[in-house]
Design a protein around this nucleic acid. Structure first.
Length: 152
DNA sequence: GCCAACGTTGGC
DNA sequence: GCCAACGTTGGC
């Protein structure tokens, strides 16, 4: 099983939005970065776990756990001319963007970015690297366990 | 709203 | 293929 960290802006789609979905699942669409797309398309599989991270908000940090509930498939927003994620260069036969589906597992008391930074065992986390803006990053089993320890 | 650090685009 | 200009991300 692999572990991930997935960022979302709570004012766009937060953990509570996921909880209120009918099956507590949501397509992780709208990702328009090739590296993040490749992680979803090539590396994520059903059953993988991820931390749900709130970004671009007053209190950024990890706020929940999700699992991958569907392997990657073409992101439908790329074909939707009314969507802000519409991509005129993408075609049905050659889709450019993919997304997985995530399923809610658990909400946790916010582990703030400050606290994450303050834990020396987490210094290897990709999101702490200077200038890293990737919305999806892999994390190690050790990092995963260490973060889980912080919510007890 | 600012700004650093990227990624993408497009002319050449 | 280079690279300047532009757009985006995301913490503060």
């Amino acid at each position: 099983m692999k572990y991930w960290l997935m960022k979302s802006e709570p004012q766009v789609f937060g953990i509570d939005d996921l909880i209120s979905r009918p099956h507590q699942t949501e397509p992780w669409d709208g990702v328009r970065n090739y590296q993040a797309r490749n992680f979803m398309r090539d590396d994520m599989v059903v059953g993988d776990r991820a931390f749900f991270y709130h970004s671009s908000c007053p209190s950024p940090g990890i706020t929940g756990l999700v699992e991958i509930s569907k392997n990657a498939y073409p992101d439908k927003t790329q074909f939707d001319t009314s969507s802000k994620y519409f991509d005129p260069k993408s075609t049905i036969s050659k889709p450019r963007w993919f997304n997985v589906e995530v399923k809610f597992l658990k909400k946790i008391p916010l582990i703030s970015l400050d606290k994450i930074r303050g834990n020396s065992k987490l210094s290897t986390l990709q999101i702490l690297r200077r200038g890293n803006r990737l919305s999806i990053t892999p994390i190690t089993k050790e990092e995963w366990s260490e973060i889980l320890k912080m919510c007890q």
